[in-house]
Amino acid sequence: MKLEEACRRINKLADIRFGDLFSPDDMNTIIRNKGKTGQLLELSLGMHLSNTNLDFDDGELKTNKCDASGNPKETVFITQISGVIDELIQEKPFEQTHLYEKISNILYVPVCKDGRPEDWKFLPSIHIDLSLPEFSSLRDIWRNDYYSICEQLRFHIENSSDGFIHTSNGTHLQVRSKDARGASGNYHPIYSQIYKRKVSNKNHAFYFQKQFVYDIRHIDR
């Protein structure tokens, strides 16, 4: 499914209570696992869940917890960095990165989670296509954030007391820890071929910070 078609379909679901939108079984899934709302949105669009790199044929779906006015309550996960740490250290050109592939064409869907799960609802989506002139300012911000974060990560590796990467921030983008202990009780360290050692004792990921949401809502008006 193309992202533009998904945008039209999703906006038809906007402002409908989950209790009216999903089956009782789906609602039980949401109540048990509140992180499944993005997957349920994909299923409601007639999509099949998969492990492909992108959610749509030409872009990515991003859902985020918000209040009834669309103000964000959380940051937005983008992608993990363990597999591309050396690309970041070497500052691979932004437009050639895995990160750019994940954010160059995205559909942002705020999910209002005020009240009971039955009363939750999707709010109108925002389609961001970095190839369009109206999003050139976002492209510039994200490019600058990317290179700044690459520099910060290198600085942490070479100068921090533990030799590890740490939280690195731009205007919209952020790299911070994203890891949970596995069955063995261990985290998932990041190894750099460039430095020939571990540069973190746990996995990290790119996120959009909350400011991203406020700014794209302003652009979309």
Rank of each mutant, 00 (worst) to 15 (best):
S44L: 09
E42S: 06
L61W: 00
I78C: 05
I81G: 04
F56H: 06
L40K: 10
T52C: 08
L41K: 03
K73A: 02
N64C: 11
K102N: 11
M27R: 04
V111N: 14
L107E: 12
Q39R: 07
F22C: 05
K65P: 01
D55K: 03
I103N: 05
P93Q: 13
E91G: 04
D67K: 03
L43C: 06
I106V: 15
M47F: 07
D58W: 00
L54D: 04
P24T: 05
L99K: 08
H98S: 12
G83V: 06
V84N: 12
Q96E: 15
E91M: 14
Q90V: 08
G46C: 10
T37R: 03
N33K: 07
H98A: 10
Q80A: 15
I85A: 06
D26W: 01
G35T: 14
N105Q: 14
D26N: 09
L43A: 11
S82R: 11
T79W: 00
N28C: 04
M27T: 04
E60N: 07
K73W: 06
S50D: 14
E42W: 00
L41H: 05
N64I: 09
Q96P: 01
H98P: 01
K34A: 15
H98F: 15
E42F: 05
Q80P: 02
Q39S: 10
I103E: 09
I85T: 05
L107A: 13
D57F: 06
S104G: 13
S82A: 13
Q39H: 06
C66A: 13
S104P: 03
I103F: 09
T63D: 06
T29N: 04
T75M: 11
D20P: 02
T75H: 08
N105F: 13
Q39T: 03
L40V: 01
E91N: 12
R32H: 06
Q80F: 01
L99D: 08
S69I: 02
N51S: 14
L99W: 06
L61M: 08
I78G: 00
K34L: 08
T29A: 14
K102L: 12
T37F: 09
E74P: 01
Y108F: 15
N71F: 11
N33E: 09
L49R: 15
K102W: 08
